[in-house]
Every structure is written in structure tokens, then in C-alpha cells.
């Protein structure tokens, strides 16, 4: 099915307060993960990148902190091309939590100190409380936590660096429903605290629960940008097919 990319000049104009994807293509071997993707992500609220499996939404997210580099095109962080920024500094400013929890060996304290070796216990406890965990977790072995707890520790670890934006890549896919809603609440609380979130999911119900803005990614392109309440309005056929559940 043909995808109509949303690729107008206004959307790819550099802006102080958003990520801009300017004709981004990512080719990996024979596969085009992103195919001339154009669009932008505002820095307020939760922006959900939604689309079928393999559509390129995770690749788009990973371009934001340069874990992935465009083969052609550019990604702007504010007014800066991320290719021209120091990748290590960029990744401190643009935090990321992954699909599967990635606790490192050692205690929760050890994990948090990977992000900031000089982190004090008081600061660590405050960050754990921010993600809904008690201070007693500091001495727990991170790799022995439940999926939901480990994912919260990973979010806490990311927050230690005090990022300006947080990328969340299908972070609820390996946790139980209660933890899923808890993580969604955490995303909302980050936004309330002034930290915008880019949230990848293929779950339309979740999109409706958490999104302030929606980007629909289909076949490597940003096929539609919208607010969640009027997502059906002016949506191209490929997006309608996905929203109707024909493509998963």
C-alpha cells in the first residue's frame, strides 16, 4: 500500500523546541529501515510514535540520540544537526529507556552510579522515589528485580543524567499490565515535571492513553502527524489501514 509521507517545508524547518527529521533514510544491508522520513516532534507532552512492527519507529527514535545514524538526511535536535554534536554529550541530554529492561550486574546503587559515579545515596533515593521505588531498593541486586521494577530502575538510571528529553522504546512490552499502567503514569509525571517524552508503541489503546501528539510510522516513513483525538482526520490510506487493525 502506498504511503504518503508528510513532508512539507514547515515540518522540517529547524526549531528551538523540537526534533526534526529532514529526509532521513537509514539503510542496513539490503533493508531500508527508514525511507525518506520527514516530520518533527514537539517538545511538550508525550509524543507517541506508533506503527506496525518493523515500520521503522524504533529506528527513528534511535536516530534522536545517535544510536543510529542516517544514511542520508539529517536529524535536528533543536537547531543542531545531531551529526555535528558530541554523541556522548547528546546522549546525556537525550536519555533513553529500552524495550527490554537492561539492568547491569551489581546493586541498584551500582546501576545508578554508572550514570553518575559521584551520585550520593540521598540523591539516589530521591530519584528512586521519582520512579515509584522505595529507597530500600538501593542495595537490591538489579538483575534479580521483576521486569517492572527493573524497568523503573532503568528509567531512574536515565534520569540521573538529568536529560532534557526521554526516549522510551516500547518500554512496557515485557511487563505485566499493572506495571504497564504504572510506567505510563511515570511518562505523564515526567512531562508534568517539564521533561518531554518520545514513546514508541504499536499498541493503539496505549497510544490513546498516553499521547499528546502522534506520529504514525508506516514502511519507514512518517505517514501522518496528528493529535490523538483527531487521528483519523486526513489520514492517508496506509494509516487508516493500520488504525483499522488491518496491519499490525
Amino acid at each position: 500500500m502506498a504511503v504518503t509521507p508528510a513532508c512539507n517545508d514547515a515540518e522540517i524547518e529547524p526549531d528551538r523546541d523540537r526534533f526534526v527529521f529532514d529526509h532521513v533514510t537509514v539503510v542496513d544491508g539490503q533493508r531500508r529501515r527508514l525511507d525518506d522520513a520527514c516530520g518533527s516532534v514537539p517538545w511538550d507532552g508525550v509524543t507517541v510514535l506508533v506503527g506496525p512492527s518493523g515500520s521503522g519507529k524504533s529506528t527513528l527514535l534511535r536516530c534522536c540520540n545517535r544510536l543510529e545514524a542516517p544514511t542520508t538526511g539529517r536529524v535536528l535536535f533543536g537547531r543542531d544537526d545531531v551529526a555535528h554534536l558530541d554523541p556522548l554529550g547528546l546522549r546525556r541530554r537525550v536519555g533513553m529507556v529500552f524495550q527490554r529492561p537492561t539492568p547491569f550486574p551489581g546493586t541498584v546503587r551500582d546501576n545508578l552510579q554508572v550514570a553518575e559515579p559521584a551520585l550520593t545515596d540521598d540523591d539516589a533515593v530521591a530519584i528512586l522515589q521519582q520512579v515509584g521505588l522505595e529507597g530500600g531498593f538501593l542495595d537490591r541486586i538489579a538483575t534479580e528485580l521483576s521486569g517492572g521494577e527493573a524497568q523503573r530502575v532503568c528509567l531512574a538510571r536515565t534520569l540521573v543524567a538529568e536529560p532534557e528529553v526521554v526516549l522510551m522504546d516500547e518500554v512496557t512490552s515485557s511487563v505485566d499490565p499493572a506495571q504497564r499502567y504504572g510506567l505510563e503514569e511515570l511518562a505523564r509525571s515526567l512531562v508534568a515535571g517539564g521533561v518531554p517524552v518520545l514513546w514508541v508503541t504499536h499498541d493503539l489503546a496505549q497510544m490513546r492513553r498516553v499521547a499528546d501528539h502522534v506520529l504514525v510510522v508506516v514502511e519507514g516513513r512518517i505517514a501522518h502527524m496528528s493529535h490523538p483525538t483527531d487521528i483519523d482526520v486526513d489520514a492517508p490510506p496506509a494509516v487508516r489501514a493500520f488504525l483499522a487493525g488491518e496491519v499490525s
Binding site: N65, L67, L88, G89, R91, R92, G95, M96, F98, Q99, R100, T102, F104, V114, A115, C154, R157, T158, A161
Partner: peptide, 13 residues
């Protein structure tokens, strides 16, 4: 890979 990329995402070289 996930673990390695989580370290990179924290700004580790």
C-alpha cells in the same frame, strides 16, 4: 547488545 547500548545511551564512550 541491549545492555551495551544502554551503557552507550548513558553517555559512556
Amino acid at each position: 547488545r541491549d545492555e551495551v547500548e544502554a551503557r552507550l545511551a548513558l553517555g559512556q564512550p
